[in-house]
């Protein structure tokens, strides 16, 4: 879907360029574009700052004495602690300081990439996350890619048809969008791993092991994006440029793939930005069902054991992923619809 390809003649050299009043592109284009990029990055920083602050506030608002909680997590049992024990922990984590100071310390740490130390594992949170992030990112990206494949194939095949196929198309979208990850994962596991034996039961790090977990995340997402895409697809099918293409001798399939599809994917791209972030939370369930390593399992463990630095670290990470995903969405938007570049 590139805008210019080899069949358009090479751009004439500056000297030979015919004198034509350009309609809108003037040489000063770089400055507004630069400003837009600066605005985007500024917005991203604000979002991350907000997420970090919210995570800190939630941590501070939790009931109970923090030092006691930390000691109990380490010991694995809930008992009263002596003031001496608590003083040492307070000293270590700076808990005796006023909240504002704690907050500033925390934000200051974030600025240099320090997410704190895990209560339970005695390791820096960043290290805990980095160890586990790989499989989760692989799972998320595979899931989003799979959902696009499924969605595009299904919508292109069924949208705007008459008769039974048309009804089936929309019904399948809605049903798929409503499937809970937990249930879908178990069904896939039962049928394809235990029943047919096509895939390993414990998915592990292998390439084939990622298929079922990714499908579990991809199917509901495909249904969800399919609903939005189908509406646009059917609207585009009625557009005059489609009739023009048919009048040129293009067949139905050609029109769907070459003209209509491109017009109908914009809402799905928007959703993908959200989905890249949301599949991380879906990964929590899926990684548990398929016994996969990953950030989801770390998060579940950290929440259960009240290992707050890890929880907040993951929250900030997810926020960062959302920000990155949305920047990618903006980029994809102008690739698909170049008109937005000048808007």
């Amino acid at each position: 879907m590139t805008r210019t390809s080899s069949n358009s003649p090479p751009r004439p050299a500056p000297g030979t360029r015919p004198v034509v009043p350009t309609l809108r592109r003037s040489p000063t284009l770089t400055w507004p574009r630069l400003r837009r990029i600066v605005e985007k990055i500024g917005g991203a920083v604000v979002v991350l700052f907000g997420a970090a602050t919210a995570a800190f506030a939630a941590q501070a608002a939790l009931p109970g004495d923090r030092a006691t909680v930390i000691l109990n997590i380490r010991a694995g049992q809930a008992i009263e602690r002596t003031p001496a024990e608590l003083a040492q922990i307070n000293e270590q984590y700076g808990l005796q300081n006023p909240l504002v100071v704690q907050y500033l310390d925390y934000i200051g740490g974030l600025l240099v990439g320090d997410l704190g130390t895990s209560y339970q594992q005695f390791k820096p949170v960043s290290e805990v996350i980095l160890q586990q992030i790989g499989p989760t990112v692989a799972l998320t990206l595979t899931a989003v890619a799979l959902s696009w494949l499924i969605m595009i194939a299904w919508v292109t095949l069924t949208a705007g048809r008459t008769g039974r196929l048309a009804g089936a198309g929309a019904v399948v979208d809605t049903t798929a969008a409503g499937l809970p990850h937990y249930w879908l994962g178990i069904i896939l596991l039962l049928v394809f791993s235990l029943g047919l034996g096509w895939f390993p039961v414990i998915s592990g790090p292998s390439a084939i092991g990622i298929v079922l977990p990714a499908l579990t995340l991809a199917i509901p997402l495909a249904g969800f994006m399919g609903q939005a895409t189908r509406t646009e697809f059917e609207r585009s099918l009625e557009q005059p440029f489609v009739i023009s293409a048919r009048m040129r001798g293009m067949g139905d399939t050609g029109v769907r793939l070459r003209h209509v599809l491109r017009h109908s994917v914009l809402p799905a791209i928007t959703l993908s930005g959200w989905a890249l972030g949301a599949t991380i939370s879906g990964a929590v369930v899926v990684e548990t069902v398929f016994s996969r390593p990953g950030i989801g399992k770390v998060l579940v463990g950290a929440v259960n054991s009240q290992d707050l630095p890890v929880v907040t670290g993951i929250v900030i990470l997810i926020a960062a992923l959302y920000v990155v995903a949305n920047l990618l969405v903006d980029l994809a938007y102008t690739l698909v619809d170049p008109r937005l570049k000048s808007a």
């Binding site: 805008r3 210019t4 557009q239 005059p240 440029f241 003209h259 017009h263 698909v336 619809d337």
Partner: peptide, 10 residues
């Protein structure tokens, strides 16, 4: 609207 609005006319 009778030419595909996302593609160059060429």
């Amino acid at each position: 609207v009778s030419l595909d609005p996302l593609r160059p006319v060429g």
